[in-house]
Amino acid sequence: MYLMSKIKQVLLVLKPGVVTLKYPFEPHPVAKDFRGQPSWDHHKCVGCGGCAAHCPARTILIRDVCQDLRVMYYDGSRCTYCGRCADVCPEDAITMTEQYELATNDKNDIGVNMELFMLTCQRCGRCFNMETTNMIDKMGLRGFKYDNLETRAVISKLTTEQFDPKMLEESDRFKRPQK
C-alpha cells in the first residue's frame, strides 16, 4: 500500500515534467502591455514639461539652464513605472518599453538625460504665450522659468496691455546675455 502510494506520487510528478524557468540563461518574454522602463524620443518631444508635472514620484526633473536650452533628467531609481508620463504626453514622445532587467550597482545607470532646444517667442523672448488673460495662468507660466531677473523685469512690463514706446526702446537696447 505504502509503495503503491509512492509510485502514484512519482507518476504524478513525472506528468508535468520540469516546470522551473531557465530564466537567466534563456530570455523570458514579458506579458502584453507590460510597463517597463520609459524611453524618450527626443525628436518628438516639444518640452512642455507635462511628464514632470504629472510624475507621482517626481522623478522627472526639468531645469532651464538658459533661454533656449531646457534639460530634462529622468532619475530611474525611484520610478514606479506607472506610465502616467506616457499617458499625458501630447506628442507620444514617451513609450513604456519592455525592459525590466534594470538591476545595477550604480544609480546613475538607469537615468535619462535629455537636452531640449527651445525656440523663444520673437516678441517677448519667452518660450510661452504670455498673452493669456487669466492672471492665474500667467503666474503658472512664469513659474517654470529660471532666467535672469533683469530680463524678466523688462519682459513682464512689455507684455502687459498698455503699450509704452519708452519701454520698447529700452527692450531694443537690452542685450541678451551671451552663452
Partner: peptide, 20 residues
Amino acid sequence: VDKKASPVELKQVEFPIDTY
C-alpha cells in the same frame, strides 16, 4: 549575466540660431 542598464544621453540636434 552582463549588466544591461546604462545611462542615456539625448540631445535635440538643431542648429542653435540666435533668434534675436
